[in-house]
């Protein structure tokens, strides 16, 4: 191991990882940095990482404030347990990094803001065709059994981003963040070269800028879903009629999905200076949809074009619903 990077043992960086409402992919992404993990191991002590090492919440509670130099927090905040850990880790950490789309803007779990807790419980525990639940049991925060009281964290009605709960210092975007963004971030931390607080640790450009396809003037006649294409051509997805979130999404992934012949679904999150990723894409898409012969189109024909866009929320807000201007569905 490279000992030079850490002049003395007691100067080792103290780091922590935590996962809240997320799929676990961000944990794997940390290992995806391959041999660079050895540099991290050489430069840092891992104080807390529930998925990999045996540490308990009480170990964190026992720490003095600011004991952790950097905490990487992935996942959105959906339960009281996650909220408690967000507050606790904020107190114990000098730098708190929102790691991945879920902690930054809600991510896939954040799409649940289209429903209420009651609707979610009803679908998951009662109505689901593969669920057998004759007693109609749904999660409760506390239940008395003969051995005593059992408790569960509270499941909140609304999914929140990490910075809606605590102050966040840096944002590392992606679902999950790309290995090179992670190593760049860790490098900046080790060398003490972090940008100003509040920065997103990724390029300022859009995904289109890093995409392998040649850009030309885009016009869409009709909207198709990827399976409706006879053949995927080697050109911009939008020009093939497939919705690609590239124009409204922050770069950093090096156009990964297009490398695999799939359109961008927007995991890089908001572009700098955009207030709402979905609304930005709605504006961009509407500006190129059916523009040929637009002066002769009837309003009904325009309606038909718009009808071709299925699942507006899932398409335009796949990763950012809790961070968007209308961040949850209005319940009657």
């Amino acid at each position: 191991m490279d000992k030079k990077k850490t002049d003395s043992k007691d100067k080792k960086l103290q780091i922590a990882f935590y996962w809240a409402a997320s799929c676990g992919g961000c944990e794997i992404a940390v290992l995806d940095i391959d041999e660079a993990i050895l540099d991290v191991a050489a430069a840092a002590d891992i104080l807390f990482w529930p998925v990999a090492i045996d540490t308990k919440y009480k170990d964190v509670e026992a720490m003095k404030d600011n004991t952790i130099d950097v905490c990487f927090f992935n996942g959105a905040v959906r339960t009281s347990e996650q909220e408690h850990l967000a507050n606790l880790l904020r107190k114990k950490s000098k730098i708190l990094v929102a790691f991945g789309a879920c902690s930054i803007s809600g991510g896939i779990p954040g799409l649940a803001n289209i429903a209420s807790r009651e609707e979610i419980f009803k679908t998951a525990y009662l109505d689901n065709p593969s669920t057998e639940n004759p007693d109609k049991t749904i999660p409760k925060t506390s239940v008395k059994v003969k051995e005593g009281e059992l408790t569960l964290p509270e499941f909140y009605d609304t999914v929140k981003t990490l910075d809606q709960v605590v102050d966040v210092d840096y944002y590392l975007p992606g679902c999950p963040p790309s290995p090179w963004l992670i190593t760049d971030a860790i490098d900046a931390i080790i060398k003490n070269k972090l940008p100003p607080k509040g920065s997103v640790l990724a390029p300022m450009k859009s995904v289109c800028d890093e995409c392998r396809f040649e850009k030309s003037e885009k016009k869409i006649k009709s909207i198709k879903r990827i399976y409706e294409l006879d053949k995927i051509e080697d050109k911009c997805f939008l020009e093939q009629g497939v919705i690609c979130m590239g124009p409204a999404t922050r770069a950093g992934c090096r156009g990964k999905c297009m490398e695999g012949n799939m359109p961008c679904t927007g995991c890089g999150g908001l572009l700098p200076n955009s207030l709402d990723q979905g609304a930005s894409m709605i504006s961009a898409l509407a500006s190129i949809l059916g523009v040929e012969g637009e002066e002769n189109m009837t309003d009904e024909e325009v309606d038909k074009l718009i009808e071709q866009v299925k699942d507006v929320v899932g398409t335009f807000y796949k990763y950012t619903l809790p961070a968007s201007l209308i961040n949850r569905r209005v319940m009657k």
């Binding site: 289209i114 709605i282 898409l285 718009i306 866009v309 335009f316």
Partner: peptide
């Protein structure tokens, strides 16, 4: 015109 039609779909979905 197109933007607002698409936006209205979003609003409907969001209640």
């Amino acid at each position: 015109n197109r933007r607002i039609k698409l936006l209205k779909k979003l609003l409907g979905d969001m209640g």
